[in-house]
């Protein structure tokens, strides 16, 4: 159970750099502004890269969670 109302779940597990942010950029427009995408990755670089991506593109990372075997990231589309 997550605290966020998620519009879409993106499974990017097993994809290394630069694939997670590339896929993210391709999927962000599939939800409406204000909606949230939940991302699952196994790339440790994603912990730093998703906030960097959001900072550049003007979107928001609400939360990153390091779970066993994967990383969970909640991204809110702002633009």
């Amino acid at each position: 159970m997550s605290a966020h109302a998620v519009a879409k779940v993106l499974d990017l597990k097993g994809l290394p750099c630069p694939m997670p942010v590339v896929k993210m950029s391709q999927e962000i427009n599939s939800v409406k502004v204000g909606e949230i995408i939940e991302v699952h990755t196994t790339d440790p670089g994603s912990l730093a890269d998703f906030p960097a991506w959001a900072d550049t593109t003007g979107n928001e990372v609400l939360e990153t969670k390091q779970r066993e075997g994967s990383i969970q990231i909640f991204v809110k589309r702002l633009k």
Binding site: C17, P18, V21, V22, M24, S25, A52, W53, T56
Partner: peptide
């Protein structure tokens, strides 16, 4: 990798 990453960053 930098090129595709930059494109993904908009």
């Amino acid at each position: 990798i930098i090129a595709t990453g930059a494109a993904a960053m908009g």
